[in-house]
Design a protein around this nucleic acid. Structure first.
Lengths: 224, 224, 224, 224
DNA sequence: CATGAATGAGTGTTCATTCAT
DNA sequence: TATGAATGAACACTCATTCAT
């Protein structure tokens, strides 16, 4: 570390791809696909532009690698969490949601949805990959949990296929808020407290439980 | 050559900007800011590329105009709906949400969030405008309604500033789903049924109302 | 011409392509396809690099246009010359050859064979075009003339399909000499005198007509 | 791992240059100088790209080496053949030409003219080398033979300096045909038969020897 | 007002060359 | 010697912007 000062480069064929992907994630997250210059990515990664092409065929390839690499490890983790069978379903679900909110609100991972949203139109196969590997899998997990909870009598019976995206929506929102808008406004959202309210509303609903006797159904709002 | 032989290109010069903005919305929605070529916008608008510059200083200007123009009329409409004072708050809220879900799921308007998400990093003042004029105003409306509902005893008391984004999240989600992912997957979401489940969960919560006696609080899920 | 000094550009959509092709012929002839920079072509044509792309899809397109445009007018001319039916065949042939030698030795046209030779491997369809439209047509003309001459008893009977390239070879040689080697050597070849010798050898052969009696055939050299 | 386990890469270091030149000849002949990647040459030679630079200063050097190496051995051989003093000059000449036609039509050597033609403009000293060492020497040999033949009364008196390139032209043509155009067309030229016709025309001329009495000179065609 | 030919700065990509190992 | 990872200069191509008509 001390002595041999400026080796023009070190051989790190194995470390490089991950470093480049990390640098690229930063860059793409900051400016989007088109506005990101490979020169910048290279600079961030501490390499030259040409070196990028030793590891990725072109900009598009690099972009897809970024999305895949950033996503894949988290996919497995999330799936594991929700497949636990024993214990209260609500508790599992709450914990899973909490984990998700925390990760998307505090890591660079939250920038991925933004990237996919921005570029789905230009990279159809990326969109397809994302829908299938992330969205469908994620929603599927939620749907399964909801169905199980209902079967056990813990949850009310709601269509799991439609309730799943309702569950997921606040997670998407906080991810986007933290990665897209918060840098441009003084208003901040505290992820922990946001989660608490989210979980409260989700599980308990907005309506006050009326002590009084009957309650007419109003405008389609089914009240238990 | 003679009198009025070429009425074809005699467009009203005052209609032009709106036509251009409409054409540009299509183009930007389809490919994003950077990937949209002004040539394409001009072609869609039935004018020449040079003519764009008679109405907009540059591409960025046009982009901002698109976002503003597409948003502004809808802002007022939504606000009006929620400021009604009389009647059940839940009904008003439900109707407002229904209107929003419908509009973002069925019109080009739903592409706006996508555009803002994609380009906030590159157009800070656009992001600021959007946060202030759309997000904050929208969330503010929701918060007010929630506060009013709580004050009237209709709603449980939840932090309105945090519950507002929870309310808004499914609207964002359906907007993005329809405009970003649905074109790339066979899976579709029926906006009406989605809304029904959304409203149901939102108002009534997920948890089954237990007929039985006591119910312990589990893992922070407060049960009424 | 006098007054309005520097119009940044004039509209010349119709003149441009030919001007560009002419400039490109110069450039390609001088350095070959790969070594020619489009910047140079543009400079020679007095336009900017971008303008090239208004008229030609890419460098390859421009290259092919150069070859085609430079060739086509000459093809017709050459063909006309040789199709004359009356008069001595030898005279016609001699004149045609003379015309060809002159044109390839004194105009930029002589650079075309060089370009095709250099790039046939990289542009197979160009090669095909050249073989079919130039080589085969040219050789076909020669073959026809040889056959006619033989039929009339003017020429000895030789296989026209093989004699045709023999006829053509010195024309190719002088084209290449003038365009490839002569710039790099003090040795010059006078095209006129070269032609005279060429025609003399071609028509009369190398062997001395021996007055003496018998002459044995030596090593396959058939002697009349 | 033990004694002589890796003989695979133990190439004789003295064989290397020739192997590289051979590989490079293939590559350059196939794609030309600019389009040839040193990566390809290295791969063909079974070495790494870096190793090339142990034997050749740069790409240009390698290219020149290819041309020189491919040419040099053949130059001597050809010269020897033509310097024989005894016997019929025509027979010697015919045999020399036959040898040349055969070699350029059937070996990689025929690709050299193509390379020189393509790159003379970019490598003036290569062009100079080629003119002096190949063209001038070759033409010189021919000229000498022609002069000798004329002096002996075997050949008609023609300007040897100009007749020499006429002699050489069909050799060049067949070299280029085989290496440039034939890969792109179904039409093939049989080198042996081509040579026969070439020699026949060269020695005997095209014109029929008229039995009848006098023959007027027509259009400059001197008739014996 | 409208046009569209022309511009030229900007960037992705290639590849000869270098040099630590 | 030999390697191949790394470099960076070079260049084709795009497209927002300008402006003569």
């Amino acid at each position: 570390m001390a002595a041999r000062s400026k080796p023009r480069w070190r051989r790190r064929k194995d470390a490089r791809p991950a470093e480049i992907v990390a640098a690229a994630l930063e860059a793409f997250a900051a400016r989007g696909f088109a506005a990101t210059r490979l020169d910048d990515v290279a600079k961030r990664a501490g390499i030259s532009k040409g070196t990028l092409y030793l590891y990725f065929r072109n900009k598009e390839d690099l972009f897809k690698a970024v999305v895949r690499e950033a996503l894949l490890p988290n996919l497995a983790r999330a799936e594991a969490r929700l497949s636990a069978e024993k214990g209260e379903t609500a508790t599992h679900l709450r914990e899973a949601l909490h984990g998700l909110v925390t990760v998307v609100a505090t890591t660079r991972l939250g920038a991925i949805p933004k990237l996919v949203i921005a570029e789905a139109g230009n990279f159809p196969d990326l969109a397809k990959f994302y829908v299938e590997e992330v969205v469908n899998r994620g929603l599927g997990m939620f749907a399964k949990v909801l169905a199980r909870g209902a079967a056990r009598g813990e949850f009310r019976a709601v269509d799991p296929a439609l309730a799943a995206p309702v569950l997921a929506a606040p997670i998407l929102l906080i991810a986007l808020w933290k990665n897209v808008l918060e840098p441009h406004t003084p208003r901040t959202i505290d992820a922990q407290r946001f989660f608490d309210v989210y979980a409260d509303v989700l599980f308990n609903g907005l309506l006050a439980k009326m002590p009084g006797p009957r309650r007419t159904r109003v405008s389609g709002i089914r009240n238990a």
